[in-house]
């Protein structure tokens, strides 16, 4: 397959008064054209840092320690500022976590999109750009006459759609959607996710979905990557990962979310807290919260290895699931090997 984006042992730290925060550590993944990748993990595990690294929008106190990010086989971190500027939006666009606040309150929404188009495609006239914005609005389901309104005149859902329209404005090759629907209610959330997915398939665009919500990721991703404390712990085709998760953290994360269509199971929380990234635990970063932890886990960093075709994990004692996930959950609830505490 044709690789669009590749992260190669990418490691990025933040400098703070207390020391270096190891926000992203040795992330290796690749994304093919037209593929949708879901990046899932708890808050603060470094998902957004990965997104910002790909956009090269890191704050001034960050430092890329090692590794590379290749977009269309070019290292983003050795490009000039001007090249990066041209790559943004035309190559990689982004739907921000706080869509509500990512529109400038004193500019008309349409103008903010037209601006992006005419900046990246100087040959396009302003009128053509305006027409394109109108058709984009149609695509995401905003009435055309709303183009010349100000953001405060939009409802939350409309702002979200406008931000999506803005991300699609320059026909980017890759769109990173950072918690695209967190602020919306479940019904709207689902609708918008489906719409994005349809548009993506139609124009054969790649996507990275970032969410803490496993169900969102499950719905729209081809490939799933699970992140914990700045590291990838598991990655593979969505079907594989969700049916036969190998890393205990992935299992824990899935147990923590209800499944509407699948069988009922008791929701379980993962005991403990995510580690402090200023001074992460030695060995596997998940070991203090893992009930499968062995001596090895405490001492040695697990290697990133393939467990099946395209399915990778970093675990010394991967979970073996035979049969279906729901059977496994039942078994686990009974045998309480995984999520120990349960709540009714």
């Amino acid at each position: 397959m044709d690789t669009l984006l590749k992260l190669d042992d990418f490691t990025m730290h933040y400098r703070t008064k207390a020391g270096w925060v190891q926000a992203v550590d040795g992330v290796t993944l690749s994304l093919a054209r037209g593929q949708a990748l879901g990046l899932v993990g708890e808050s603060g595990c470094g998902k957004t840092s990965v997104a910002m690294s790909i956009m090269k929008l890191l704050p001034y106190n960050s430092k890329v320690v090692r590794g590379r990010i290749l977009f269309e086989d070019r290292d983003i971190y050795s490009m000039s500022d001007e090249e990066v500027r041209r790559m943004r939006w035309k190559g990689i666009a982004m739907i921000f976590q706080a869509a509500m606040n990512s529109l400038n309150p004193v500019y008309r929404v349409g103008n903010q999109i037209v601006e992006a188009i005419v900046t990246h495609e100087p040959e396009t006239s302003e009128r053509e750009a305006r027409e394109r914005v109108a058709s984009l609005f149609e695509l995401v389901g905003i009435p055309k006459e709303r183009v010349d309104h100000y953001p405060h005149e939009y409802s939350g859902g409309m702002k979200q759609r406008a931000v999506i329209a803005m991300a699609l404005a320059c026909n980017p090759k890759l769109v990173i959607a950072d918690e695209p629907t967190t602020a919306l209610d479940v019904i709207v959330q689902d609708k918008i996710l489906r719409e994005i997915d349809q548009i993506r398939r139609k124009i054969n665009m790649s996507m990275i979905y970032i969410s803490h919500d496993v169900s969102v990721i499950a719905e729209v991703s081809d490939v799933v990557a699970v992140m914990y404390a700045g590291k990838l712990v598991e990655m593979g085709p969505a079907d594989n990962v969700f049916k036969k998760p190998r890393h205990p953290y992935t299992c824990g994360l899935m147990m923590a979310y209800p499944s509407i269509l699948g069988d009922k199971h008791e929701l379980a929380t993962i005991p403990g807290e995510p580690p402090n990234l200023l001074d992460p635990p030695a060995g596997c970063r998940f070991h203090p919260r893992c009930d499968r932890a062995s001596v090895e886990c405490r001492e040695a960093d697990p290697v990133w290895r393939a467990v099946a075709e395209g399915h990778y994990t970093a675990c010394h004692n991967p979970v073996e699931i035979t049969g279906t996930w729901s059977e496994a959950v039942k078994a686990l609830n009974g045998g309480e090997r995984l999520g120990a505490s349960s709540n009714a």
Binding site: L57, K90, F96, S102, N104, Y107, A116, M166
Partner: peptide, 22 residues
């Protein structure tokens, strides 16, 4: 520090436009 300034930068707008218009 507002998100829309970050968004404007992500849009690949030139630095001066991000500064002046956003």
């Amino acid at each position: 520090q507002e998100d829309y300034v970050m968004a404007a930068r992500a849009k690949g707008l030139p630095d001066t436009i991000v500064r002046d218009r956003y």
